[in-house]
Amino acid sequence: MIRWISFSLSVLLLSACGTSVKRVDSDETIDLSGAWNDTDSRLVAEEMIDDAVSQSWIIDYFGKSGNIPTVIVGDIRNLSHEHINVKTFIADMERSLVNSGKVDFVASSDERGQIREERVDQDINASEDTRKKAGQEAGADFMLIGQINTIIDADDNEQVRYYQVDLTMISMTDNRKVWLGQKKIKKFVKNSKLRY
């Protein structure tokens, strides 16, 4: 019996595990390590932008100017304990802002540089009736900035991860903060003490 077990163990040790791939829906929540993931990014962005566009600053601005506000997303700083891809979070927010239909949205400074280069190129190479003029850009009325912070409490193989995302909408005219949004996520992560 013992010999059979040891022989089986030998065979098992010599056998290799293959890679398996399964396609899943991009909206499906899969938590592997407990770290910030695509679901956190998407849900936080959607909830916070929903809150931002449902507040009174939009109505106030419309009342004063007769136009819907034009928004630009500025710096979102990652001050957390994790390497969070802020670009995907910004993209999620931009999508939620544009899809809300309650604000106009302008390109970021990096994107503007690219568009301006193209405009200069059009000046030289495009036909007159399709050429776009310089100096016609829409200026933003508000800038959205923010930061992602975390507090980690760890003991042995257990960890509580607390994420706090703070966003602020600031008026470009007078630096007034017209909206402050906050979203918190708390996760309890327990790692196994044993593995195969």
Partner: peptide, 16 residues
């Protein structure tokens, strides 16, 4: 002691 058999050991040495 029981687990230590020549077949197991040689298999493991192959993995070394």
């Amino acid at each position: 002691t029981s687990a230590f058999t020549p077949s197991l050991l040689w298999a493991m040495l192959l993995l070394q």
